[in-house]
Design a binder for these strands. Structure first.
Lengths: 174, 174
DNA sequence: GCTTGCGTTCGAGCGCGCTCGAAGCCATAG
DNA sequence: CTATGGCTTCGAGCGCGCTCGAACGCAAGC
């Protein structure tokens, strides 16, 4: 499959790794190294969401979480894995209701796999569309930056004395 | 500059052009071919938003629009260009309040160009981050699709008779 | 023993970005 | 002449995804 390949190309193309990328890759590529069980604060930190949000997801029926003797949540590996999936899909833009439907399919058993697959395919296409949109937006912003005479600008710093006069922009052009 | 290059690579890499891409590129690369003036329905169609949304943007102070004798909005080329920019930035994820700030800078005059440039640079970085996130999500979804035995799956269609049993998933794994 | 801190439940509230409905005006079509 | 349709203003409402506050429980540390 072309997954790593694609990822490599994309990260390569984008350069400029933020602090996010590293953790994200870690989370992406190692869905298995979760401890036996975790408390809510640990899961929250792992997934970079708030405990509030985790409780919200549970209330929304996305995941079931056991309690210990004190009534505190105990996330087993399965719950954590599901939450990894959920937060990943949320990040990718999947709606809560779709996620709810998806997990209901998961809980309904193996015979729902075809429908789940359909959902994933659809989500894949959604992500691709969004990537295209964003890439276009990026180009637009970069073009605008260039014509502003920003750092990478081609020809600008012309006549004006100060902070960026001497350009062809009409008044009010953004 | 690497803009076209990047775009080409990105679109290339993503393939599978939707109906969106073509118009989007058109809108991206030709911000100049707008008519002398347009009515709200035309602008709405051009930008693929509702007239409601256009009125909302105007109320929000993002753009000023003249009226004709009947009180109907008349969008001149400048207003349309600004709205092209606005919708593009909205699509890229820029918040309404930031856009409001940006246009207030534009209206304040040339001396605000440095700050505007800063905003654009920040937005560029935001888009890049989002692209990285999305690319990661895409990889995750594609991986999941592959292990489901979806279209591009490597080894799946094994024992099960019907619709996709015979895999190693633990119960409840999404 | 008391405080500190993290956890619990429940329901309400919020920020965002639209989205809609009501009531009315005007122009064109039949 | 009337009806239809598209526009106007205004304010209210909505869907989403959290986010927070209140009131409380339990456990460990000083």
């Amino acid at each position: 499959m072309a997954t790593e390949d694609l990822m490599t190309r994309a990260l390569d193309m984008l350069g400029d790794d933020g602090p996010l990328s590293v953790e994200a890759i870690h989370r992406l590529t190692e869905p298995a190294d979760v401890p036996e069980s975790m408390v809510i604060a640990e899961v929250a930190e792992l997934l970079d969401v708030s405990p509030h949000t985790l409780r919200y997801y549970e209330r929304a029926g996305l995941v079931e979480v056991a309690r210990d003797g004190n009534g505190h949540r105990v996330y087993d590996a399965q719950a954590v894995r599901r939450l990894v999936f959920i937060t990943r899909m949320r990040l990718s833009g999947m709606a809560m209701r779709d996620l709810q439907h998806y997990v209901s399919l998961v809980d309904a058993g193996e015979h729902t796999e075809p429908e789940r697959l359909d959902m994933l395919l659809e989500q894949r296409d959604t992500i691709r569309r969004r990537l295209r949109e964003l890439t276009l937006s990026l180009s637009a912003v970069e073009y605008k930056i260039a014509t502003y005479g920003g750092s990478t600008g081609p020809d600008v710093q012309a006549s004006g004395s100060g902070t960026g006069t001497g350009r062809t922009a009409a008044p009010h052009e953004p």
